[in-house]
Structures are given as structure tokens and as C-alpha cells.
Computed example of a mutant assay.
Amino acid sequence: MVVHPTAIVAAGAQLGAGVKIGPYCIVGEHVVLHDNVELISHAVVEGHTTIGAGTRIFPFASVGHQPQDLKFHGEASRVEIGERCTIRESVTINPGTEGGGMLTKIGNDCLLMACSHVAHDATIGNNVVLANYVGIAGHAVIGDYVRFGGLCGVHQFVRIGNHAFIGAQSMIDADVIPYGMALGNRARLAGLNLVGLKRSGFDRDAIHSLRAAYRMIFSSEGTLRERVDDAAVMFKDATLVQDVVSFIGGAKDRPLCLPRPEADEE
């Protein structure tokens, strides 16, 4: 363990083996840094915050300070960050609130680029990339392997499914299906994240079934509920399709991000 003499580490902080704390960092009394965590310099980790092994935090990041929520009254809410994450310059991550489960959680192997923000009670999956200036609002749920282009905003309570891709400068105010691609302000579904699916090693038959189900679900015949039910039966053995069906069925707080109507595209 290496702690620079200019760093301030509170007496109650728990530091694992191999932790490195660089110049002018501040670590609060309720913070837990697991093995091989590194704070490069000028980073602040406060509150009831736990950071997983091998995560690196770059200068001027602020993790665990009270959320930007007027309903917060000092409750001992938490931040949990997984293993091997990279948190770049000026990232802000806020703890949960009493109204949202008391926990903000980020999974393993995530990359949060400079100036990105994760608000109170948000849940970020594994292997997620937030490009520069992405803002994730409170209570949002981001699945595994989601990729964001720069300057995106995500509305509170929005869900984004596994392996989705969000194009740069998009404003997401509705749920985005797993494997979907959303673009624009306000964002519309722009097809499937086929590049991401191929890079992740999904086989051609699985992708073919997903494409066929996508065309069925987002066609203009019948109601959305009817089309989703039909896809659930027709593609009952297609895992990726069932992921989409389950995601749509779990809608709660926000509408579903849909393709742009054909009339708008002419």
C-alpha cells in the first residue's frame, strides 16, 4: 500500500493490499478500497462507498458526495463500484437516496470517460462504456455491455437493455430494448446494434431470429402487445428474442423507445 504524504485518508477508511493513493486525494472514513485500487491524484472518495479491486480513479473525480436531490436528508446511502473499472477525469458519482433503494451501483469492467455523471440510485451493469459528458439521471437502469457516444443524456427511471448502443448527442427519455440502437433528441429506435452483436460473438442464427422478431414487433399491424405476444410464441427458443420480450413486459416508469414513423422519414 502506498499513500502519498499530501493525501488525506480518514482513520476509519479500509484499504486493501496494493492500494495506491496519489497526491492530494481525499478518502472518507466510511470508504472501502479493495485490493489494487488506485487513486491517481486529486480524487475525492467520500460517503459509504465501496470500490472493487483493480479500479482506477483519475484526477478531480468525485465519488460518494451527497446526491443532487432536494429530497436527500443525509441518510447513509451507498455507492458500490465493481472491479477493474476506469473512472476518468472529473467524473461524478452520487450515492442513493431513501426514495430509491439507498444504493447507486456500477458493475465490473466499466469505463466512465471524462466528465460523465452517474446520479443517485442508478444501476450500471458490467462492461458499460460512458463516453465523455454522458449524464445518467437518477434511478436509471443500464444493462450489461451498453455503449454510449459522447454528450448523451438519460432521463430518470429509464431502462436501457443489454448490448444496446446509444448514438452520440442523443437524449434518451424512453426505455431502449436489449440489442437496440437509439439515436437523436428525443431518441428513436434506429434498428439493432448489429455491429455490437457481431463483436460480442453472437452466432448468425441468433442474430437472424432477432432481426425477424424486431421487424414483427415494430411493424404497423395490430397492437404492440399483440405483436410482442406473437413474437414470444414464434421465437420461443430464441434467447435474444425472449430477452427483448421480457424487457418490454417489464416496462414500468417510462414509455418504450420506438422507431420513427415512416411518414416522418419521407
Rank of each mutant, 00 (worst) to 15 (best):
R199Q: 10
I57S: 03
G12M: 00
D203R: 09
G153Y: 04
I124S: 03
Q169G: 10
S219E: 04
V141D: 01
A263I: 14
S219A: 13
G16K: 01
A164M: 09
V158E: 08
A164P: 05
L111S: 04
V158N: 08
N94R: 15
D237I: 09
E29P: 10
V31G: 08
Q14D: 09
R88S: 14
E83P: 02
I8T: 12
R215G: 06
T86H: 04
H4C: 09
S219N: 08
I87C: 07
L224D: 12
I136V: 15
I81A: 03
T6V: 06
M234E: 15
D264V: 03
I87F: 05
T123H: 00
D175V: 13
L189N: 02
K236M: 08
Q14H: 10
D205C: 00
T6N: 10
V44D: 07
P59I: 13
G222V: 09
I142Y: 05
L192T: 13
E38A: 14
T50N: 01
V134C: 07
L240N: 06
I124E: 06
S90Q: 14
D253H: 12
G184A: 08
A114M: 07
R147S: 14
S200L: 09
G96W: 00
I217F: 01
G135M: 13
R186C: 10
V118N: 09
M234I: 12
P259L: 02
T50E: 12
T86E: 05
H208F: 04
L258C: 10
V233W: 00
H208R: 12
I106P: 07
N108Q: 02
I106T: 06
A251V: 07
G222W: 00
F157G: 06
A168Y: 10
G143M: 02
L15D: 12
G201R: 02
P59Q: 06
G249W: 07
V228R: 00
L256W: 00
E38F: 04
V2E: 06
G125F: 08
R147G: 15
L70G: 01
D229H: 01
G201A: 02
S41G: 11
G138H: 11
N185Q: 11
P67F: 03
V2D: 04
Q156N: 11
N94D: 15
I160F: 09
S90R: 14
A231D: 10
V228W: 01
G167K: 07
S220Q: 14
V245W: 03
P261Q: 08
L15C: 13
V37G: 11
C110T: 07
N36V: 04
V45T: 12
E266Q: 02
V37I: 12
Y133W: 07
L33E: 01
K20C: 09
L111G: 05
A164I: 13
N132K: 00
I172S: 11
A17H: 12
A263Y: 00
Q242Y: 09
S200A: 13
G201M: 00
A53E: 08
E83T: 12
R225S: 14
N185A: 13
G96H: 03
R254A: 08
A168N: 14
F148T: 10
G101V: 06
L224H: 06
G82S: 00
L111Y: 04
N94C: 14
K105T: 07
F157C: 03
S170L: 04
V44W: 01
